[in-house]
Amino acid sequence: MLHTVNKSVFERNSLQSCVNTIDDTSVILLIEDGVISAAKNTKSSVLADLAAQGRVYALQGDVDARGISSKVADNIKLVDYEGFVDLVVEHGTAVSWL
């Protein structure tokens, strides 16, 4: 299952709720303000283990728009809109965490 998170960890606890809920086959895609969690030294340490497993993605356009391209944490994969569509197709079901 694909889980999208569009809120910053500084705004809501959506990311933590998502991480607490997902199973071992799920992946997370950070979009909109959710990409703030992809930056190093944020409250995103909850993503470290999942990112090391290759299960965390961030939307490149949103990362660029927020000026954090050079600050993306290790193991978080950046995808463009085509990559976003590929993730939706690959995982079949998407859940949005607002």
Rank of each mutant, 00 (worst) to 15 (best):
D74M: 10
D64L: 13
V95R: 01
L87F: 12
A73F: 04
I76A: 12
G61L: 03
V79I: 15
D62T: 11
K71S: 15
A94G: 11
G92W: 02
T93C: 08
H91M: 09
R55E: 02
I68E: 00
H91A: 08
E90T: 08
E90I: 03
L78K: 09
G92F: 02
R55G: 04
V63S: 05
V63G: 09
R55K: 14
V63K: 03
Q60W: 06
L78Y: 01
Y57P: 13
Q60N: 12
D80S: 05
R66H: 05
A94Q: 15
A65W: 09
V72Y: 12
V95K: 00
A94S: 12
V88D: 00
S69A: 13
A94R: 10
V85K: 02
K71F: 15
V63A: 07
D62P: 07
A94V: 15
Y81P: 05
V95Q: 00
A58H: 11
A94Y: 05
A73V: 00
Q60M: 04
R66A: 14
N75K: 13
Y81W: 10
V72N: 11
I76V: 07
V95Y: 03
D64N: 05
Q60Y: 10
V85S: 11
L87W: 01
D64Q: 07
A65N: 07
L87G: 12
G92C: 05
T93A: 14
V72H: 11
I76T: 01
D74T: 12
V72T: 10
V88W: 08
T93V: 10
L78Q: 12
E82C: 06
V85N: 09
V56L: 13
I76N: 08
L78C: 00
S96N: 15
G67T: 00
V85A: 14
R55T: 03
L78P: 01
V63L: 10
L78W: 01
V95T: 08
S70C: 06
L78A: 06
D80I: 08
V72E: 10
V63F: 06
R66E: 13
V79S: 08
T93K: 12
Y57S: 04
R55M: 07
V89G: 01
N75R: 13
R66M: 06
V63T: 02
R55S: 07
K71G: 15
T93W: 00
Q60H: 11
T93P: 07
A58F: 08
N75C: 14
E82A: 14
S69Q: 07
S96P: 10
G83F: 06
G67P: 01
S70T: 14
S69M: 04
T93N: 08
K77L: 01
G92R: 13
V56K: 13
L78H: 05
K77D: 04
V72P: 11
Y57T: 15
F84S: 04
V85L: 06
D86M: 07
V79L: 12
D62K: 04
G83K: 06
